[in-house]
Design a protein around this nucleic acid. Structure first.
Length: 214
DNA sequence: CTCCAGTACG
DNA sequence: CGTACCGGAG
């Protein structure tokens, strides 16, 4: 079976097992974008606490967050860990949008995928996964997000080599699947769910896994 | 490869 | 207690 066929089969299996997941949690595109930075190497539960703090402080908008003192922002996002680093990364991101897009999120999100992606990647602290997460989940653009779960799951099933990079793995998916944001969203969401639920780093639960014998 | 750094869970 | 967490930069 070809790689493309295998990926499509995995999608069908996961959809059968999990159904529609309706990702990414967030009340607004701005909140989704902020969440993408805060969740870098961090448990989502901790990110939710940080976002709750930002909401309470009325800081969950581009204009409001841009006006915060760095130390104040860091204090609010403390529960997400790496708070000094992430406060700086958020500030870098907001500065880019304020400068290049005149503080207009709609403008950034309405620009073509490749342009938006490049603009995000130029921000210090925004790498490929964070940029793609923002493009897909905040701006609804057709790009497949690769993460540690995807590497682990595909590695364990012989579809990803040890030395494979982010873009190589992304190509695998983008070449095999229709470029549909809703489908990419659902697929990645299910991979994350599978990674948490079954394909854990240690003690994976393979019995009864939707991807068993895949 | 190391640092960043708080939280939850076994 | 150790491990892991929807990574990225130096």
């Amino acid at each position: 079976m070809s790689t493309s066929q295998r990926l499509n089969e995995l999608y069908e299996r996961l959809l059968e097992a999990y159904g529609p997941l309706n990702w990414w949690p967030g009340d607004s595109p701005f909140e989704v974008m902020v969440g993408a930075v805060l969740t870098q190497n961090t448990n989502w539960g901790n990110v939710e606490k940080a976002i709750a703090n930002l909401k309470e402080a009325g800081a969950l908008s581009l204009a409001a967050m841009s006006r915060l003192e760095p130390a104040r922002l860091a204090g609010l996002i403390r529960p997400a860990g790496y708070y000094n680093l992430k406060a700086k990364r958020l500030a870098n991101l907001l500065a880019m949008i304020n400068q290049r897009y005149e503080g207009d999120l709609e403008w950034l999100f309405a620009s073509p995928l490749e342009e938006m992606r490049r603009a995000l990647m130029e921000v210090k602290g925004v790498g490929p996964e964070t940029a793609d997460s923002i493009c897909l989940y905040a701006a609804d653009k057709p790009v497949f997000v690769i993460d540690a779960y995807t590497f682990r799951i595909l590695g364990r099933h012989g579809l990803a080599e040890e030395d494979m990079g982010y873009f190589e793995l992304q190509e695998l998916f983008m070449d095999a699947l229709p470029h549909d944001p809703a489908m990419f969203n659902q697929f990645h969401a299910m991979l994350v769910h599978l990674g948490k639920d079954r394909c854990k780093k240690s003690n994976p639960r393979c019995e009864g896994c939707p991807a068993q014998d895949w």
